[in-house]
C-alpha cells in the first residue's frame, strides 16, 4: 500500500512541477488564463466534494459561498483600493462571512433529510441571489461592477502562480483533513449516519464542520475568480456555479480529491474547445447537453467518475481489489 501511495505522491509532484514551470516554457496567454480558470474551479469543486463525496451531503447552494467570496473581494478592492494588503484582507473577510453563513445554514438545515437539505440550500442560495440583485448600492445588481486588481496581478503569470499555489495548498489541507480522525468520522457519516450516531458521535457537529470548511474554500475560489475577471456581477451567485461544481465533481470522480481537479480540467477545456467548434457547427453551442448526458451516464454506470474508472482498471491489471465506496454506492435508503 505504501508503495502505491508513494507512486501516487510522485505523480502528483511531477504534475505540480510541470504546471509550475509551464508558464515559463510556454508563451501562450490563452493557456495561462485557461489553466488559471481551471485551478480556481478545481478549488471550488474540491470544496464541493468534501460535502458530496466525503460526507454524503447534496448541497445545491454552493454558489452562495463562491459569491460571498467574489463579492467580498470585489467590494473591498473597489472601496479601499487595489493593494495586496486589502486583497488578503478581502479573502479573510470572505472566509469569515462564508464560515458564519455556512455555520448557521448548517445548524438550521443539516438535521433535515437529504431531500429537504438539497431544497433548502437551493432556496437559501436563491435568497442570496435575490439579495445580490436587489442591494444595488453595494453590488450594482446584475450589471455588476469592475474594479482594479492589485498592481502585481496585472502580470498574468503572478496570478497563475498564486492560483496554482492556492490549489496545491487546499489540496494538501483537504487531503490531511479527510485522512484525519475527523475525516474518518465524516466518511462514516456518509456510509451510515445512524450507526455513526449510535457509536456516540454527534453527527450534526461533524456535518456542520464539513459544511463550514467547504464554504470557506468555496469563498476562496470566489475571491480568486473575482480577481481573475476584475469584475463581479450576480452570475457568481447563480445556480450555474453550483451546477459546474457538481458536474466537475461527478465526472471527475466523487469521493476523491484528484477527481474534482480532473473534472474541472476536463469541463473547462471542453467548454473552451467546444465553444470554439460552435462557430462552425452550431450544435456545439449546446455543449452542456453532452455533459448532461455524460453526467447521467456517470451517475448510473460510473458512480466514481474518471478517477474511479482508472482505479478499477488499475486494480484489474494488478489483480488487486479496490474498495468501492462512496455516496453513490447502491444501498437501500429508507425514507
Amino acid at each position: 500500500m505504501s508503495k502505491v501511495l508513494s507512486l501516487n505522491k510522485s505523480i502528483y509532484l511531477i504534475i505540480a512541477l510541470a504546471l509550475l514551470i509551464f508558464p515559463f516554457v510556454s508563451d501562450s496567454r490563452t493557456w495561462t488564463i485557461l489553466l488559471t480558470q481551471i485551478f480556481i474551479f478545481a478549488i471550488l469543486a474540491m470544496s464541493y466534494d468534501l460535502l458530496l463525496g466525503y460526507t454524503g451531503i447534496v448541497s445545491f447552494g454552493h454558489a452562495m459561498f463562491f459569491g460571498i467570496g467574489a463579492y467580498s473581494t470585489g467590494i473591498v478592492l473597489d472601496t479601499f483600493g487595489p493593494t495586496l494588503l486589502f486583497f488578503v484582507l478581502s479573502i479573510a473577510i470572505g472566509f469569515i462571512l462564508a464560515a458564519v453563513v455556512s455555520f448557521f445554514v448548517g445548524i438550521l438545515t443539516l438535521r433535515l433529510k437529504s431531500h429537504y437539505f438539497a431544497m433548502l440550500t437551493l432556496a437559501l442560495s436563491g435568497l442570496f441571489l435575490v439579495a445580490a440583485e436587489k442591494w444595488r448600492s453595494l453590488t450594482f445588481g446584475n450589471d455588476g461592477f469592475t474594479f482594479r486588481a492589485p498592481e502585481i496581478f496585472q502580470d498574468r503569470l503572478v496570478f497563475y502562480l498564486l492560483s496554482l499555489g492556492c490549489l496545491i495548498a487546499v489540496f494538501i489541507f483537504l487531503k490531511r483533513f479527510v485522512s484525519s480522525p475527523m475525516g474518518h468520522v465524516l466518511i462514516s457519516v456518509r456510509e451510515n449516519e445512524n450507526r455513526t450516531a449510535s457509536l456516540g458521535f454527534k453527527t450534526l457537529h461533524y456535518k456542520v464542520i464539513a459544511s463550514v470548511v467547504a464554504g470557506v474554500f468555496a469563498s476562496l475560489a470566489g475571491s480568486l475568480y473575482a480577481v481573475s475577471l476584475r469584475f463581479v456581477n450576480t452570475s457568481v451567485m447563480t445556480m450555474d456555479i453550483t451546477l459546474d461544481a457538481l458536474l466537475m465533481t461527478i465526472i471527475g470522480g466523487v469521493g476523491t480529491l484528484v477527481g474534482p481537479i480532473l473534472g474541472a480540467g476536463v469541463i473547462e477545456l471542453a467548454q473552451h474547445y467546444l465553444s470554439g467548434l460552435a462557430r462552425d457547427y452550431p450544435i456545439f453551442e449546446r455543449w452542456i447537453i453532452l455533459f448532461g448526458i455524460l453526467y447521467i451516464v456517470a451517475v448510473i454506470f460510473f458512480p466514481r467518475g474518471i478517477v474511479g474508472g482508472i482505479q478499477s482498471i488499475y486494480a484489474r491489471l494488478t489483480g488487486k481489489k479496490v474498495k468501492v465506496a462512496g455516496p453513490m454506492k447502491k444501498s437501500v435508503v429508507k425514507s
Partner: peptide, 14 residues
Amino acid sequence: NHVQQILITLGFML
C-alpha cells in the same frame, strides 16, 4: 438511493 436520485434528476433537467 436518494443522493443518486437528486443528482440524476438534476442532470436530466439540464
